[in-house]
């Protein structure tokens, strides 16, 4: 496997980002991020002035953003390559000296830039607006949380691109994206190791869970996000349905959570590329 020729790779990413602008996807995505961010900041400002106490920006934003980020990544990007395949755009792109790896990895990079731009814009808008309406901002913490959210965004973008590289129709892409969101965000994922343990224990629940059950639970990318955020800032509610444990095991600590998120990005992209490499257009 040769490294993608850097010039066509950069070209592909640049034009992919510009495509989202031409198709108004970029503008829409930024809108979907900025609008809730502005509304929530405004609401936090109102409640601060009414109750007369100190309100911080992050706890007001996080619950919405923890849901919005995976949802928008899957919703916007899960049909990217599927659409290009059905319209025949891939026949044009792959008629040029552009490799299939460039198409998959370039789409991941391009769309990651787009969603991070949306996320970044919404956070940038929130800060001056928060100060204006009297909401406190801890800037250092705000930046770190922004980076964590960006990592979550890239993880789900990688899942979305993997879906779009694997399935052949938009319907299936949409269904798979919806399933991925439900499984990860509403943590149906946790039922998997629990059911496994139930079956292995002769169809009854063991009194104490075997060690691999919470380990598998921590592999959920949303759990990893919650563990990463909760481990760094225990007082912040991550906004996910999964609460980090009070006494985290090694695999529930921030460092491991970081590895899990990066692992999902690499694994999803590798699987997507493997399928896409050998597929018939």
């Amino acid at each position: 496997m040769n490294a993608p020729a850097p010039d066509t790779f950069a070209l592909f990413v640049r034009e992919d980002v510009r495509d989202t602008v031409r198709e108004r996807q970029f503008q829409l995505l930024v809108g979907f991020f900025v609008l809730p961010s502005a509304l929530l900041t405004y609401a936090a400002g109102r409640s601060a002035s009414v109750a007369g106490n100190q309100v911080e920006l992050l706890p007001s934003l996080l619950p919405a953003f923890a849901m919005l980020t995976p949802l928008l990544a899957l919703g916007f990007f899960a049909s990217t390559l599927v659409e290009k395949r059905t319209t025949g755009a891939l026949n044009v792109v792959l008629g040029l000296p552009i490799s299939r790896r460039t198409v998959v990895v370039g789409t991941l990079v391009g769309r990651s830039i787009v969603i991070c731009a949306g996320l970044g814009a919404s956070l940038l808008v929130a800060v001056p607006f928060a100060l204006f309406v009297g909401v406190a901002v801890d800037l250092g913490r705000f930046v770190v949380v922004g980076v964590i959210l960006a990592l979550l965004a890239v993880t789900f973008t990688a899942l979305a691109v993997a879906i779009s590289a694997t399935v052949r129709t938009s319907t299936r892409a949409t269904t798979a994206a919806f399933a991925a969101f439900v499984v990860f965000f509403f943590n149906l994922w946790a039922h998997l190791p629990n059911t496994l343990s139930y079956v292995r224990h002769g169809f009854s629940y063991p009194e104490t869970d075997p060690e691999w059950v919470p380990f598998l639970e921590a592999i959920n990318p949303v759990a990893a996000y919650a563990n990463l955020l909760g481990g760094l800032y225990p007082d912040l509610n991550s906004g996910a349905f999964i609460q980090p444990p009070a006494e985290p095991a090694v695999y529930e600590r921030p460092a491991f959570a970081l590895v899990v998120l990066v692992g999902w990005i690499v694994l999803a992209t590798a699987v997507g590329y493997r399928r896409f490499r050998t597929t018939d257009l």
Binding site: E15, D19, R22, E23, K84, T87, G88, A89, N91, V92, V93, L94, G95, L96, P97, I98
Partner: peptide, 18 residues
């Protein structure tokens, strides 16, 4: 190969809104 081949494929479509 595709660096030296010009292609007019069947079933092509526009790339996005380009």
């Amino acid at each position: 190969v595709r660096e030296r081949v010009g292609v007019l494929p069947d079933g092509y479509g526009p790339i996005g809104e380009r």
